[in-house]
Amino acid sequence: MSRAASTWLSEAVAVFTKDWRCELRTRYALNTVLLFALTTLVVVSVALGPLGADQQARGAVLPMLLWLILLFAAAAGLPRVFGHEEEKHTATALRLAATPSALFAGKLAFSLVLFFAIEALTAPLFLAMMQLPVAHPGRFVAALAAGGYGLAAASTLVAAIVGQARGQSTLFAVLSFPVLLPLLLLAIAATRAAVLGGDAGAELTQLVLYDASMTIVGLMLFPVIWNP
């Protein structure tokens, strides 16, 4: 059993390192997704203009904008996790050689690291440009982490479905947004509470619940999605 577990883990790690090696050589996701997030960030802050000094109003609106930017950044970058395997016909080799659940775990880890990197660069910049003070930095980070995990996990799973269909980028938005909306509303509520200094305990618990159920259902559903 432990031998099986260790080979499963080493498979997942192999997929993860392979993806990062490819990513660091092409820099596709890092360059375009990050630039996409920054561009929308600038557009949003310029278009919004000065919001006035009312912290309550700013705290109500700005967390929502932050999560919308993150959502669109995820939609721009994460479908590629499986999309490029299908496009370049490397998916066949993976179907033959990899254990499906280990493959999903490796891809999920890749999406998570990528998305956390995007969050780590976007969120501080957003706070600085919007001049938004955060009442509870710890809760703010927790909301970003829990929300980001769910966003990346659900997106990875939907990307696996969309990878085998036509019109990938449009279809990804259509399929993922209804799945992501409950998560997004929770994440916005948690972030808002963190910014304004409220209690975010219930929202964070529910976010973790969403994250856990996405991970479990992903590991269970992926073999079915991946193989005929």
Partner: peptide
């Protein structure tokens, strides 16, 4: 296969829709 998988994903999201959302 893909449609069925997506429908199962819907079952997982539905509780968040029905129980979590109205409380927000």
């Amino acid at each position: 296969r893909l449609a069925a998988a997506y429908a199962v994903l819907g079952l997982v999201v539905a509780p968040f829709l029905f129980f979590v959302l109205p409380r927000l």
